[in-house]
């Protein structure tokens, strides 16, 4: 059997968007190193429930790093210490007996706290509705092989399409910019022939919406790339800027 650990936690507790928050201290005994980080929080919540306290709220669904639901600041790092790893993919074997871990929600003006570690990421959906799609009605598509697409274009497009919309990029950015998120979608669609006809309208609408939502500007800190669980490169942002400039000044 693996040796069990005692873990100390400082967890941000906040009852609602308008309530004041504070850190609370908890200790979780008997943590198995094979547990995932969220399973450790499950155990904490079971203990809190039985002792009559409210459990710590956090969002989660797939618990395998693909849905983008989870996302918390762990010791000041979005999704914790490991590269290309979402919170739900972290395991307690990365920690040692007696460690203290500080857990907070994403902090960004555009992502108000709902409760404890849960924030409202609806602005991402509104950026997408502004133009993050190809306008093709169901049934109107040509045969799937009618337009060949070079393999390397698709592979590159895929690298950007892999975004899980977790919001870590915003949380890590000193300006709370959503440029990596927006740039990833702009780049995914701009790199494919299917996305080309609308690329000007798309980039303009999405960038405008991003600003309206209260996200900051990008000043090339690259913190977003460092925390992205899918390893999306900041070349997405460069591509988005090029698209934007072309849309604003380019010829038809």
């Amino acid at each position: 059997m693996s040796k069990l650990m005692t873990i100390h936690l400082k967890v941000w507790r906040q009852a609602s968007a308008t309530a004041e928050g504070r850190f609370a201290d908890y200790t979780v005994p008997n943590v198995n190193p094979h547990m995932s980080f969220l399973e450790m929080l499950d155990v904490l919540n079971e203990n809190l429930t039985l002792s009559g306290e409210d459990p710590v709220e956090f969002d989660h669904d797939c618990r395998e790093g693909i849905c983008g639901s989870c996302g918390i600041m762990i010791n000041g790092q979005a999704h914790g210490p490991n590269a290309r790893t979402a919170t739900c993919q972290l395991h307690m074997r990365d920690y040692s007996d007696g460690d203290t871990i500080v857990i907070e929600p994403w902090r960004a003006k555009a992502f108000p706290v709902i409760r404890d570690l849960v924030v409202d990421r609806a602005p991402f959906d509104r950026i997408m509705s502004a133009g993050g799609y190809v306008s093709v009605n169901s049934g109107a598509a040509p045969d799937a092989n009618a337009i060949p697409v070079p393999k390397n274009s698709v592979d590159e497009a895929f690298d950007y399409a892999a975004c899980i919309g977790c919001g870590a990029c915003v949380a890590a950015c000193p300006n709370s910019s959503a440029s990596l998120f927006t740039g990833a979608k702009v780049s995914h669609l701009a790199l494919l022939p299917q996305g080309s006809p609308e690329r000007k309208e798309r980039v303009t609408a999405m960038v405008t919406q991003m600003a309206e939502e209260g996200f900051g500007d990008c000043s090339n800190h690259a913190e977003c790339e460092a925390v992205c669980p899918k390893g999306i490169s900041i070349t997405a942002i460069a591509l988005m800027r090029r698209e934007y400039v072309k849309a604003a000044f380019g010829r038809q």
């Binding site: 598509a141 337009i147 669609l189």
Partner: peptide, 22 residues
Amino acid sequence: NTIIDQCVAQGVPFAREYGGLL
């Protein structure tokens, strides 16, 4: 078959071969 057509048109990056086909 129509599903694949629809998804490709939406920009779903299905795996492709070197010739550019699916």
